[in-house]
């Protein structure tokens, strides 16, 4: 059965709602759910103070309303499914290790930060630090997938160590900065300073981009691994051109300030173009 949570009120003050996750709410009755504590600003409140609750959760939660000010939904979740029919707030699915979150609207900053498994799909745009690490830490996305159909802010995949981030729109500056490993695929424009301080990992762009002076051009080639990724995305219903699968890519390696084992692949239909 699906648990429906409908946000009743218009929020100015953020709600700390890490509790909204199948892990925490599964098996509870409606009245028990209504009493589950959460923090509104600096006060302890209950879920029932803010949400119309119907149904129970056996793995799936549907959230209706504008969740922009609701933080940390699905954080640390290990399985199940959350659907947000609207926008989501900061820290969506941060540190999650399994399950799936789908957002119809936009997502906030730190979406999927430090997550280690599962999948987040954002239909709209997402904020800064998607799949990133929190300040001072060096443990960004460690596994799982984040797919953003719109644009993202700066530092997508900061310090990521594994997993996949797909951005169908544009990404901001410092995409994949401090990256240790993993894959970022951007279909729109890349911001500047892509891959700064990256050690390993792949950043793929379907558009041209200027790279830092510490990146070196290696070659134009047809990376076979990428075919796997793109076909996999196509299977998920994302539209991918044949040319992007069949075509060639310019490979740049860097960042020579670090291990120099990372790569930026820039799509180019044919040699030299």
């Amino acid at each position: 059965m699906v648990l429906d949570l409908k946000l009743r009120t218009q929020l100015d003050i953020p709600l700390e709602a890490g509790i909204i996750s199948p892990d925490r709410l599964a098996g509870l009755t409606e009245s028990e759910i209504a009493r589950v504590p959460l923090i509104h600003g600096n006060r302890k409140k209950s879920l029932g103070d803010f949400f119309d609750i119907s149904g129970t959760c056996d793995g799936e939660i549907r959230l209706v309303g504008d969740f922009t000010k609701v933080k940390s939904v699905g954080s640390g979740m290990t399985g199940g499914r959350i659907i947000i029919e609207g926008n989501s707030g900061m820290h969506l699915g941060c540190a999650m290790s399994g399950g799936e979150i789908a957002v119809e609207g936009d997502a906030g900053d730190w979406t999927g930060a430090e997550m280690s498994g599962g999948r987040i799909v954002i239909k709209g745009n997402a904020g800064h630090m998607v799949g990133g690490a929190y300040r001072g830490g060096h443990m960004g996305l460690q596994g799982g997938e984040i797919i953003v159909h719109g644009n993202t802010g700066n530092e997508a995949g900061n310090s990521m160590r594994n997993g996949l981030i797909v951005i169908m729109g544009n990404s901001g500056d410092f995409t994949g900065a401090n990256m240790f490993s993993g894959t970022i695929i951007v279909f729109g424009e890349l911001g500047i300073r892509t891959g700064a301080s990256m050690k390993r990992g792949s950043i793929i762009s379907m558009r041209h981009a200027d790279l830092l002076p510490t990146f070196t051009y290696s070659c134009f080639y047809h990376p076979s691994f990428l075919r796997l990724y793109l076909r996999r995305l196509r299977d998920m219903g994302i539209s991918i051109d044949d040319a992007q699968i069949e075509g060639g890519y310019h490979r740049w390696c860097g960042d020579s300030m670090e291990l120099n084992r990372g790569e930026v692949l820039l799509f180019s239909g044919s040699p030299g173009s």
Binding site: I19, S72, C94, W110, A113, E114
Partner: peptide, 14 residues
């Protein structure tokens, strides 16, 4: 008189 906030009510976030 305010009830102190204790326990793990938040997420694994900052």
């Amino acid at each position: 008189d305010r009830e102190p906030i204790t326990g793990d009510l938040s997420a694994k976030v900052p």
